[in-house]
């Protein structure tokens, strides 16, 4: 099977180049990651990240024939030859298919991706109703591979300011969590003109997500929730002023 792979070693190369490989696959090689490991047997200078090899860790996200995806769950039979592999766009390349994800995780960290709850710790656990738990479906499954964020033109344009689809979906995951008490702060944290509102509904994030999630819907839900909360605050203030009268 023929491959054309992006190569760049900053210690040796002045600029990146594409290297062609023609590799004989074995019968048990079904996924792109299997083929990449075969290539690595031929050329061990090729660098890539991998770990779980079953679409759970998100390490081997890369640009496959122009579309971001996970090598370990991409079937070789679905790929046109030569298979063109590049690192995920929009992030600095460390080497070959390995990108520096610092910016991505800084944005993730900025949405405080953990429960904030000042109540005393219960004896066992913080319970949720099945309905409240269901609100997290389609959000908690994100594996932070970065495929969505690095395929988002808004992120390419403003990588330092726009949180990106993955970070925003994680923000919403905690906003809707019934055990979290920081909804107001979380919404205010996204009020800046860039952090949330650079999303122009381009939908690349939905197109590429290897877990079939919908970051765009989560982003829209955050905006809707901001309006709902503003209405409620207004009503609340009104009722207080009526009582005072």
């Amino acid at each position: 099977m023929k491959f054309s792979i992006y190569r760049f070693n900053p210690d040796v190369d002045k600029k990146p180049y594409m290297q062609d490989y023609d590799v004989a696959l074995h019968e048990e090689d079904h996924m792109l990651l299997d083929a990449l490991l075969r290539i690595k047997e031929l050329d061990d200078t090729l660098s890539l990240r991998k770990s779980c090899r079953e679409g759970v860790c998100g390490s081997d996200a890369m640009n496959i024939n122009g579309k971001n995806g996970l090598a370990c769950i991409t079937k070789l039979t679905d790929l046109e030859e030569p298979v063109v592999l590049r690192p995920m766009p929009g992030l600095p390349v460390i080497r070959d298919l390995v990108v520096d994800m610092t910016q991505f995780f800084e944005h993730y960290n900025s949405v405080k991706p953990y429960l904030i709850n000042d109540d005393p710790l219960p004896e066992t656990e913080r319970l949720q109703s099945p309905e409240d738990r269901a609100k997290l479906d389609g959000l908690y499954e994100c594996i932070l591979c970065g495929a969505c964020t690095t395929s988002c033109p808004s992120f390419w344009w403003n990588p330092d300011k726009f949180v990106g689809p993955s970070g925003l979906m994680q923000a919403y995951r905690f906003i809707v969590d019934s055990r979290d008490q920081a909804e107001t702060e979380r919404l205010e944290n996204l009020e800046d003109p860039y952090r949330l509102y650079r999303c122009h509904n381009i939908m690349n994030c939905v197109d590429v997500c290897p877990k079939k999630l919908n970051p765009n819907a989560a982003i829209a839900s955050i905006k809707d929730l901001k309006i709902v909360r503003a209405k409620e605050t207004k009503k609340h203030k009104k009722s207080i002023s009526i009582k005072a009268v």
Partner: peptide, 11 residues
Amino acid sequence: FELLTKKYPGM
């Protein structure tokens, strides 16, 4: 209308 004020620079 409150959402259209400077208090909400993004919204």
